[in-house]
Amino acid sequence: MELVQGTVKILQNTVSLSGGGKDSSVTTSHIYILEINGKTIKFDFYDPAIISDGDNIIVVGKQKNGVVEAAIYYNVTRNIRYYNYSKTILIVSLILLSIGLGIKITFDRDEGILFGGMFIALGLTFVYKYLTLREAITKLERYVSNSIF
């Protein structure tokens, strides 16, 4: 996880819609490309980011292909934190793991292993996302508690 702090310069701000076919829901993503201290930062969140040019923010995320993909941010100027649904991710992972274990126990050997294993694998993926997000939150909170703005 990389932590970047500085003054924001917004390079690009777009909204992406997906889904919306007959009887289906629409998912909205708010995508921001920012520059902070010469580093390129990408936000891809469900909610719009509350950030303007010139705001002082702290971003924590993973570096991928020269771009920091933000997991969370803290807008110091406006005193706003965004954590991207960490509790929801944990709940979904626990539900998927429970379903997977239930299927594995209930069904015969082949079906239980196949279908239960799929739910367990998906649940473990969500557990990994949750733990990664918790790591980012811990890093941000430690940095903020030790800083004077």
Rank of each mutant, 00 (worst) to 15 (best):
residue 58 I to N: 02
residue 131 L to K: 11
residue 148 I to R: 15
residue 122 L to N: 09
residue 77 T to M: 09
residue 31 I to T: 07
residue 31 I to Q: 03
residue 125 T to I: 08
residue 25 S to K: 12
residue 92 V to C: 08
residue 72 I to E: 02
residue 108 D to L: 08
residue 114 L to S: 09
residue 102 G to F: 10
residue 24 S to L: 10
residue 132 T to E: 15
residue 5 Q to V: 12
residue 149 F to G: 09
residue 80 I to Q: 00
residue 95 I to T: 11
residue 103 I to E: 02
residue 19 G to C: 08
residue 87 K to Q: 13
residue 96 L to E: 10
residue 65 N to I: 02
residue 104 K to V: 04
residue 67 V to Q: 01
residue 78 R to Y: 05
residue 76 V to N: 14
residue 139 K to G: 01
residue 42 K to D: 00
residue 16 S to G: 05
residue 116 G to L: 04
residue 102 G to Y: 07
residue 73 Y to V: 06
residue 89 I to Q: 06
residue 3 L to E: 07
residue 98 S to D: 04
residue 38 G to Y: 03
residue 134 R to V: 14
residue 144 V to P: 03
residue 11 L to M: 11
residue 134 R to T: 09
residue 5 Q to D: 12
residue 40 T to M: 11
residue 87 K to H: 12
residue 69 E to Y: 08
residue 19 G to K: 02
residue 95 I to Q: 04
residue 140 L to R: 06
residue 35 E to V: 05
residue 114 L to P: 03
residue 12 Q to P: 03
residue 81 R to G: 12
residue 123 G to F: 00
residue 39 K to T: 02
residue 145 S to V: 04
residue 108 D to M: 09
residue 62 K to A: 11
residue 55 D to F: 07
residue 49 A to S: 15
residue 53 D to A: 11
residue 30 H to R: 04
residue 132 T to F: 12
residue 109 R to V: 13
residue 30 H to G: 01
residue 34 L to F: 08
residue 122 L to P: 00
residue 44 D to A: 10
residue 115 F to S: 04
residue 44 D to C: 06
residue 34 L to M: 09
residue 11 L to E: 15
residue 17 L to P: 02
residue 70 A to H: 05
residue 41 I to Y: 02
residue 89 I to P: 00
residue 85 Y to W: 10
residue 97 L to G: 07
residue 60 V to G: 05
residue 1 M to Q: 10
residue 68 V to Q: 06
residue 122 L to F: 15
residue 61 G to M: 06
residue 69 E to L: 07
residue 106 T to P: 00
residue 103 I to W: 05
residue 97 L to H: 06
residue 33 I to W: 04
residue 146 N to Q: 15
residue 51 I to M: 00
residue 26 V to W: 01
residue 11 L to F: 04
residue 62 K to N: 13
residue 43 F to H: 01
residue 96 L to V: 00
residue 130 Y to K: 05
residue 116 G to R: 02
residue 107 F to Q: 11
residue 11 L to N: 14
residue 60 V to S: 04
residue 14 T to P: 02
residue 79 N to W: 05
residue 45 F to L: 08
residue 140 L to T: 08
residue 88 T to P: 04
residue 47 D to E: 15
residue 22 K to V: 14
residue 104 K to R: 15
residue 147 S to P: 03
residue 62 K to E: 13
residue 10 I to H: 03
residue 105 I to W: 11
residue 64 K to L: 10
residue 130 Y to V: 04
residue 41 I to M: 05
residue 137 I to G: 04
residue 141 E to R: 07
residue 117 G to R: 02
residue 19 G to N: 02
residue 84 N to Q: 10
residue 109 R to N: 15
residue 75 N to S: 03
residue 122 L to Y: 07
residue 28 T to P: 02
residue 16 S to E: 15
residue 65 N to F: 11
residue 51 I to P: 03
residue 90 L to P: 00
residue 122 L to M: 14
residue 14 T to F: 06
residue 103 I to R: 07
residue 98 S to M: 10
residue 116 G to H: 08
residue 148 I to L: 14
residue 12 Q to H: 10
